[in-house]
Nucleic acid binder design. Structure first.
Lengths: 209, 209, 209, 209
DNA sequence: GATGAATGAGCGTTCATTCAT
DNA sequence: TATGAATGAACGCTCATTCAT
């Protein structure tokens, strides 16, 4: 046995297991973002795979479960980024908001570009909003962080629940709109969303550019 | 012939027709708000009814059509309210926003209470957000009005598309949250949303109550 | 009471009864000839009528029954013609065959023209072969007559059952083809069919026209 | 591994697949010939099978497709026979007609016997004429050949379209009648049909047997 | 494990027929 | 009688899931 094998005991078996799992995840990601969660079927997923129908169930028990797995994946990748942002903001709420939004929009753009890159160019194209599991998950991360940040602010706050809901709603909508524009301008979106969240319409810069 | 009969010549037939149509609409409203549009099936609707499978099709040709009928109903009731608000605000954007939000939240609360009243008390309860057709329709009305109002504002604006998206997102989320609280406080929600939209988090009153 | 009323007691009631029955028959004839027996539905029939769905069942118990009624109608009109032909042929088989075919083709052409006349000009148009009930019925009449005539021939015959089947088959096919040509040439068709039946291919005149 | 296994490597799976496919074809043949194409339903077919509803669709996409498969099968078996007949008749029309009819009737008889053999003895029994897909297909083959043969004949012909229609009609009807008799006498039927087609009633032998 | 055919509940829809009015 | 809405069995078909191989 090689050292490598010792450190990571990948026999042929384990390797294909990993590959299959990944193949399913990849196919599922595509399918969910093209068809949306409701419309997508398990069959759609396995069809984009070289695997057999039954094999799906060796890895995931249902459509729900594979969706959750994808979401998890996104969350796992994003969580540390968000954590370091919080650490770096030293309780400065404005800074935190700005940076969190920047990170969120960057993640979105990245996801989106990967997805577009891996697609045959002129397929019919539904793109149901924010329906990819990763985006959903990352969005949830941001929401939670925002909630905590708001709750932890010193001084009495108006209504932390409403505040969080409102902030996160702005983030989501602006994010979706951003993805529809070309070129995708994550900085512009972050600026807008930050200004809007902190100062409202009246605080927005009066002219664009 | 009684005068009443003269005013409203309802035979038993017409009566049951009206009743059935209403029963279908009521069932559909329930089903859509519990399961969401995608998940709901025509059969789910008829099952909540004492009617036979085929009867549905005497009234509506498809799930889409019954959804549209419900949405129409909501829109029809709300549109004049919104129109008079616009007329009364004389191009004062702040006033318009405040009143439109008040009307929107009031409508939501009303809808919601009616719906809750007609429900068996402790059914399992998913409540997919804002998915009842009426709410969808009313929300669309508000969105359109907001978009127009923003587009029509004098002076250069930062990014009307983002602005509209952000405002409407706040309205929707705060509305949803509002419905989860008891008692339902439409005035509080409207105040919050208005302040948030116009001035952002920093403009929010520092203390609650 | 007038004499007429005495002879044919038609009150308003009886009159509409007759009219309704006729309306159903007319509609059914159209529908059967356009859609064919299998494809046609009772609903198709009543839809071409000013009557209500249930009314159909006051007159006929099913699709089958109205089909039979139409067939009967055709048979009733054709039977006397055929009878007189038999009487006039004094057991001369060749004469009988020729005249029976002429009468059959004439009836077909007549039916067909009536039907075409009563049709909107460029509707889609299936015309399933020989499927109108009248044609079916008349065809059956001719077949029976032919069978009898063959069975009654003096001298040993090769195989009366086959003979009848063969003759009638020729009549039907040539009849169908005839209806597809313009102008409809009943005489030509009768000549051809008669020659074919009596003398076969080898007895056919060598040139056409 | 045995040699047999080498020649035909059939696992149990392949075996049941073949069996199921055959079961569906058999059921379909029965259903079509008892009910006719129009009346038959996919569910009628699967009901005569031990299979589940959905299984049908693993093999055929629709009623049409299974019908076509059956027809194809018949046509494929019959086409070479007919081809060799044409080759052997060296443009002698009479010979061609006689042999083609013989082959057609033989095929019919064969088909029919197979079908009867595989049937429970005294089922209700409609037997819509010549409606099994195989017979339909074979009949079409004969018709086409006949049309070509007639069209290719030297010398002016009376009316090739009528001629073909008449010949084929005789073939079909005599064929159907033949199947109703016991014992099935394909030679007798062929003799009769040939004589009838070539010489008509008057050329028929005067006595039977 | 991987396979992929089999399963059968469920879907949207149609339609002959019934029956209260 | 005429009406036409109500009925519910049946249709073609899909799909998540199972299970023998």
């Amino acid at each position: 046995m090689s050292q490598v094998a010792f450190l990571q005991p990948v026999g042929k078996r384990e390797q294909t297991k990993v590959q299959n799992r990944q193949a399913i995840l990849d196919a599922a990601r595509e399918v969910f973002s093209e068809l949306g969660y409701e419309t997508a079927t398990v069959r759609d997923i396995i069809r984009r795979t070289e695997l057999a129908a039954g094999t799906f169930y060796n890895y995931y028990r249902s459509k729900e479960e594979v969706f959750a797995a994808l979401a998890d994946d996104g969350a796992r990748r994003f969580a540390p980024i968000l954590k370091s942002i919080r650490a770096q903001s030293h309780a400065d709420f404005e800074v935190f908001v700005r940076r969190a939004l920047e990170a969120y929009f960057a993640f979105l753009a990245d996801e989106h570009e990967n997805w577009e890159a891996s697609r045959p160019p002129d397929e019919p194209h539904l793109h149901v909003r924010g329906e990819t599991p990763e985006m959903t998950a990352v969005f949830n991360e941001v929401r939670d962080a925002m909630q905590e940040a708001i709750a932890g602010r010193k001084g009495p706050v108006s209504d932390p629940d409403y505040m969080a809901a409102a902030c996160i709603a702005v983030a989501r909508e602006v994010g979706d709109k951003m993805l529809e524009r070309r070129p995708i301008d994550t900085r512009g979106a972050a600026e807008f969303a930050t200004a809007m969240i902190l100062n409202g319409l009246k605080g927005l810069p009066k002219a664009q550019g």
